[in-house]
Write a protein that binds this DNA or RNA. Sequence first.
DNA 1: AGATTGGGTGTACGTCCGTACACCGAAACT
DNA 2: AGTTTCGGTGTACGGACGTACACCCAATCT
Lengths: 208, 208
Amino acid sequence: MTVSRVAQKERTRRAILDAALDLSASSTLVALSLRQVAKEVGIVPTAFYRHFPSIEDLGLALVEESLDTLRALLRELRRTAGTDTGEIIDGSVAVLVEQVRHDHAHYAFIARERFAGPPTVREAIARGIELAERELATDLAHLPGTATWSEQDLQVLSELIVGAMVTTAERLLGTPTGSPAEQRVADTARIQLRMMLVGASNWRSQTG
Amino acid sequence: MTVSRVAQKERTRRAILDAALDLSASSTLVALSLRQVAKEVGIVPTAFYRHFPSIEDLGLALVEESLDTLRALLRELRRTAGTDTGEIIDGSVAVLVEQVRHDHAHYAFIARERFAGPPTVREAIARGIELAERELATDLAHLPGTATWSEQDLQVLSELIVGAMVTTAERLLGTPTGSPAEQRVADTARIQLRMMLVGASNWRSQTG
DNA sequence: AGATTGGGTGTACGTCCGTACACCGAAACT
DNA sequence: AGTTTCGGTGTACGGACGTACACCCAATCT
C-alpha cells in the first residue's frame, strides 16, 4: 500500500505543527529548538527544512492557524447572536468559554507569543487582533440603535469588547474546566460586557 | 581608594538585574542565557553564581522589582485621587501613562513573562496582580456610595478595573510617547473606566 | 599583623544547538 | 521502462551553553 507523496508531506507538516504547539506550551517559541521538534515528530533534524525554513516561519504558520480559530470564534458569535442584549451577552460568554476549552492550545499560544514571541510573530498577532476589532465594528454598525454612532465610537467600543474578550480568554486559560474559578471568570465577563453595552448605549447617545 | 565589599556586590547585582531586563526585552527570560548576561555585565560566567543560583531566580528578583513598581503606581493613584469621579478617572489614566513611560522596562517585563515566563515566575506575577486587586477592593470599600456593596461585588469591580489597567498598560507599551496612538489608547481607557464606574454604581445598586 | 572571607578569574568538560553535505529509495512523471 | 523529483537519512562541524574545579587577592575580621 503506497501513500501519496503530498498526503505524506502534509501529514508530517501537521505533526511538526502539533509538536511545536505542544512543546512551546511549557515555555515559548523562542526557547524551542528545531531538534526538539524533530525528535518529537520522529524525523531527523535536517528533515525539518523540507517543511519550514526556520522555527520562526513555523511560528508564523501557527499564528495563522490560531487566528483562524479566533475568526471561527467570532463567526460562531455572530451566528448565535440573538436580538436581546442579555441573550447576546450570555450566549457570547458561553461560546467563548466553550471555544477556549476546545482550542485551548491555540489561545494559549496567542497569549504567550503576543508579547514574548519573535517580532514578526508579535506583529502578525497584533494585525490579527486589529482585524478582528474592525470586523466587529462593522458588525456593530448593523445592529439596531447604532445608526447615529460615529465610526470612531464604533471602533472604540469594538476595542473595548475585544480587549475584554482577550482578557477573559487569558483568565480562562488559568482555570480548570467546570471549576468555581471558571464560573467566576464567566460571571465577571458577563458583568463587564453588560456594563460596556448598556453603559455605551446610554452614554454615547448623550455625548456622541 | 577602596570600595566596601557589600557596596561592590550590590553594584554588580544591580548590573546583572539591569542587563537581564535589557537583554530579555528582545525575547524572553527563558531564552536568556547566563553567559549573555555575564558578558553584558562584564564578568566571567561563573561569577554569576555569586549573586543568583540560576536565571530563574534572577527572574523572580525582577518580578519583585516590577511588582514594587506596580505597587508604586497604585500608591500614586491613591495619592492623586480626587473626590469627583471624572477627576479620579482622568487622573488615574494620566498617572498610568506617565508611570508606564517612566518604568517601561518593568511593565514590558511583566507583560512578557506573565504568560511566557517560567512557571514560578508566572505564579509570582499572578499572585502580585491578585494582591493588587484585593488592595483595590478595600480602597473601593472606603469610597462614598459603596457602603451597601457585598464583598464579592467589590472584588468583581476590582478585577474589572485592574484588568482594564493591565490591558491599557500593554497597549501603551506598543505606542510611541506622545503619539496619536497613545492619545487614542488613553481616550479608550478613560471611556472604559467611565463605563465601568458609572455602569457599576447604577446597575449594582439595583441588583446587589 | 596575621588569618579569613568571598567576589571575581581561567580552564576544562560534556551537551545541545543550527546547519552543510552527500546520500538513499520510492512516488511521480515521460 | 527509464528518468526525475523529493522527503527523509546519517555524518560531521564549529559554536554556545551550564557548570565543576582550582585559584587569586583585596576587603574584612581577630
